[in-house]
């Protein structure tokens, strides 16, 4: 790099990268980390005798029980733990739906479509990304509204006879997240499938494999690293999304990021908010590592 760009430019690039890493990644995260162990105190008491490190902020997730019914039995569960569990659950659902949508399309793009029409197809997939995420979430909010175009269409075609309230519970959030993050699933899988030698698919067929076994035994194992990295991205982005749950959420949906947001902005308790944010980061990382171990995916596979 030194030889190609000269010492001046090389120094500038290195400084910019160092600034980005230090000031925009490391310092904020360390601040968050440090803040999360300190109590929320009036300004005059900061640095005073009560300002000591503790795990109190983290333990707040266990405060305030709520009742839920599961398999006909009633449980008491801390409300923030429930929110977290539902966030993970629905993020998994989003990931699964994204996979179900992206895998066939990725296979089609990599192995079936005429290479000449592929650029057009890619363009069509990319065009929605030119619109801001806020606008797209609002667009879905309008589409799914009680008197929105989706209900009008379904009423007009006679599929339903009275309008359906689509944005109830987590429906809107799941739809919005799938729409927002499906491409993060599509492209890693597309790349992985594309690198598969077509002869292997033909060899499997020639040896008598029906189409679904070809996918199960040949294509999917080959694409596993791509599927894994797509799944990790979609899951992490979904669990960490604030915008989509805020716009497409219903009165009965609560995303864990919204809880964090409420600690920051409504309670103005940045310390607890930091603790919750850290908790989300750690638990999601643990969850992903667990899933990767379960599916025998190595970190080096994903990095490819």
């Amino acid at each position: 790099m030194l030889r190609r760009y000269g010492s001046g430019l090389t120094l500038l690039i290195c400084l910019l990268v160092a600034f980005w890493l230090l000031m925009l990644v490391i310092v904020p995260n360390i601040t968050l980390f440090e803040q999360s162990f300190r109590p929320y105190l009036p300004v005059t008491e900061i640095g005073g005798p009560r300002d000591v490190y503790s795990l109190d902020n983290f333990l707040k997730v266990f405060n305030g029980d709520t009742q839920i019914t599961l398999f006909g039995r009633s449980f008491a569960i801390p409300v923030h733990v429930l929110t977290f569990a539902l966030t993970i659950l629905y993020s998994i659902l989003v990931t699964l739906i994204c996979f179900a949508l992206a895998y066939p399309l990725a296979y089609y793009m990599a192995k079936i479509v005429n290479p000449k029409t592929l650029p057009t197809l890619l363009l069509l997939l990319f065009i929605p990304l030119w619109v801001s995420e806020v606008l797209r979430a609002f667009a879905w909010w309008i589409i799914l509204a009680l008197k929105g175009p989706l209900n009008s269409l379904l009423l007009f075609t006679g599929v339903i006879d009275k309008p359906v309230r689509w944005i109830v519970d987590y429906n809107g959030v799941v739809i919005g997240l799938v729409y927002t993050y499906v491409l993060f699933m599509l492209f890693p899988i597309y790349n992985a499938v594309q690198s598969l030698d077509t002869n292997q698919i033909e060899a499997a067929e020639d040896l008598g494999a029906p189409w679904w076994k070809i996918h199960l035994k040949i294509v999917m194992p080959h694409a596993k690293p791509g599927i894994a990295s797509g799944a990790v991205m979609v899951f992490m982005l979904s669990a960490g999304s604030l915008l989509v749950p805020s716009i497409l959420g219903s009165t009965t949906s609560q995303w864990f990021t919204q809880t964090i947001d409420q600690w920051f902005k409504d309670a103005l308790d940045w310390n607890t908010a930091s603790a919750y944010a850290l908790l989300l980061l750690i638990l999601c990382t643990v969850f992903v590592s667990l899933a990767m171990w379960l599916f025998k995916v190595k970190l080096s596979d994903i990095a490819k």
Binding site: D197, N199, Q200, E202, A203, E205, D206, L207, G208, A209, P210
Partner: peptide
């Protein structure tokens, strides 16, 4: 191909 009594050996073996 999976319904024919033939077996193909590919140039790159596959």
């Amino acid at each position: 191909p999976n319904q024919r009594p033939t077996a193909l050996i590919f140039q790159n073996l596959a």
